[in-house]
Amino acid sequence: MSNSKLYKGSLTTIILKLLNESDKMYGYEITQKVKELTKGELKITEGALYPALHKLEAEGLLEVEVKKVDNRLRKYYRLTENGEKETVNKLNELANYISTMQNLVSPKLSLE
């Protein structure tokens, strides 16, 4: 990711979330989807995306399907059953992290 180091730790969660929303996606499609959803704010680099995809595949969270598209092979990634469970965990973890950071950065004032 080129924009910020802050996004680095959330890369696998972003990938899992995107794959959870669509049946299957290929590498380049993921980079473009992230760019589109964040209006170009967040760019996933190739050097970060593929190691993350291969890691998730090695952990059994993703499975691969290969198809021939326009004179070349394309690898589609899709979530496994474990991957679906892990997506829920990762999203909860991220929500907790965001809420903790929000409390730290802008704590709510209390009259008690």
């Binding site: 590498g27 380049y28 593929y50 290969v66 070349r72 092979l73 690898k75």
Partner: peptide
Amino acid sequence: RIELLDHIVSAVED
């Protein structure tokens, strides 16, 4: 190579 090729071709086309 197959994964790199697909990514590069898609990116070049775009």
